[in-house]
Amino acid sequence: MPRLNMVQAINLGIDQQMAKDDGVIVLGEDVGLDGGVFRVTDGLLEKYGSDRVLDTPLAESGIIGAAVGMAIAGLRPVCEMQFSCFSYLMIPQLEGHAARLRSRTHGQVTVPLVVRMPYGGGVRAMEHHSESREATYAHLPGTKVVIPSGPRNARSLIAAAIRDPDPVVFMEPKHSYRAFKEEVPDEEEVAEIGRAEVVREGTDLTVVGFGAMMRPILKATAEVDEARGVSIEVIDLLTIAPMDGETVCESVRRTGRCVVVQEAPRSFGVASEVIAVINDKVLMYLEAPVRRVTGYDVVTPYFGREKDYIPTAGWVRRAIEETLDF
């Protein structure tokens, strides 16, 4: 099996779907000749031609609006927003149209499109290039939000997103783009959107996370297991919306303790939603309050300060230990 980084794995996933279905169209700024500023779409123009890989003018609303039209007409557009912070310009097209045409027409008009966007900090990028705003999109009914954490699940999730019948916002943790490689089988794998994954089994506490936070989480849990002779379970959400509360609750019911981790600002975030689901379903099984490890409710600092504002393994470890000791 080839060892790929996340950029190569997403590229492979798109490539495989384009090979299978000639209705799959890639469009965005610099996705063709340049292969995308992170090279996620590298080589696709040469392979599939300029009718299927469209270098667009600078127009985020235009890209998604056009993709809505393409999707209605039977194509499967895979759009790139160059950085997530530039994606807000397309919200009227996503929220006002893509996400609700199915409901408005009782399923007669559907919009199977994918909006890919790199998000998150830790790469010393210029301002507006480091935000985590997944909650913004997760809050839009009719929109699915998917966030991979590694090369292998990125490849299987992008395949699922492209084949999904609904609009999918596919947020790529840019900090993980080239941070590590994994074996990714040549054969197509298609994940199930809406399913979290238990990536590490344990009995004493459940850590829930997603995206770039999975690496510090796994480091922290290994350390605590080692240091204290406990066993901690780790859940990777993979799909933010609609969230797989069942997997989370099944785990917390067994462990009785939970820590939720997100890079994004604390209030109104994914962690809040995980805690609300736990509260709804398994509150009486809890041995300790659920802890959140999150960013702060401040405007994302420029990169000179960002390291103090992004959760680390040490930060997660402390929250785990305090929750174990409660």
Partner: peptide
């Protein structure tokens, strides 16, 4: 040039 998009492809 807008990154890789030449003026003629912009408008």
């Amino acid at each position: 040039w807008a990154i890789s998009i030449r003026r003629e492809k912009q408008t």
